[in-house]
Simulated assay, not measured.
Amino acid sequence: MAGAPIGRRSHGKHYWQSNFIKRVFNPIKRKAAQGWATPYTFCHTMATLLLQAGVPVKVVSERLGHEDVMTTLRTYAHVMPNDQGRAADTMQALMRAAKKP
Score class of each variant (00 low, 15 high):
residue 88 A to I: 13
residue 20 F to L: 13
residue 63 R to P: 00
residue 53 A to W: 04
residue 67 E to P: 06
residue 68 D to Q: 07
residue 25 F to L: 05
residue 9 R to F: 05
residue 73 L to I: 13
residue 15 Y to S: 02
residue 96 R to F: 12
residue 75 T to D: 03
residue 32 A to N: 05
residue 25 F to A: 07
residue 50 L to E: 04
residue 73 L to P: 01
residue 73 L to F: 10
residue 77 A to E: 15
residue 6 I to N: 00
residue 93 A to W: 04
residue 16 W to Q: 07
residue 17 Q to A: 10
residue 94 L to Q: 08
residue 64 L to V: 05
residue 46 M to E: 03
residue 71 T to D: 11
residue 15 Y to C: 05
residue 4 A to L: 14
residue 11 H to I: 01
residue 57 V to Y: 04
residue 49 L to S: 01
residue 30 R to C: 03
residue 25 F to D: 01
residue 77 A to C: 14
residue 65 G to F: 03
residue 25 F to K: 01
residue 69 V to F: 12
residue 100 K to E: 15
residue 47 A to P: 07
residue 63 R to N: 06
residue 38 T to C: 09
residue 77 A to K: 14
residue 100 K to T: 14
residue 9 R to Q: 12
residue 80 M to Y: 01
residue 61 S to C: 02
residue 16 W to C: 03
residue 101 P to Q: 14
residue 90 T to N: 10
residue 19 N to V: 15
residue 38 T to A: 08
residue 85 G to S: 07
residue 23 R to Y: 11
residue 58 K to F: 10
residue 4 A to K: 10
residue 39 P to M: 04
residue 10 S to M: 10
residue 8 R to D: 10
residue 58 K to G: 08
residue 8 R to T: 11
residue 17 Q to H: 11
residue 27 P to F: 11
residue 74 R to F: 05
residue 76 Y to A: 09
residue 10 S to Q: 11
residue 17 Q to E: 11
residue 47 A to V: 11
residue 64 L to A: 04
residue 17 Q to I: 07
residue 83 D to A: 12
residue 1 M to R: 09
residue 57 V to W: 06
residue 52 Q to A: 00
residue 19 N to D: 15
residue 96 R to D: 15
residue 43 C to H: 15
residue 2 A to E: 11
residue 37 A to V: 06
residue 98 A to G: 01
residue 65 G to R: 09
residue 1 M to H: 06
residue 37 A to D: 04
residue 18 S to Y: 02
residue 57 V to P: 00
residue 43 C to V: 14
residue 100 K to C: 11
residue 79 V to M: 00
residue 82 N to A: 05
residue 30 R to P: 00
residue 99 K to T: 13
residue 82 N to G: 12
residue 78 H to R: 12
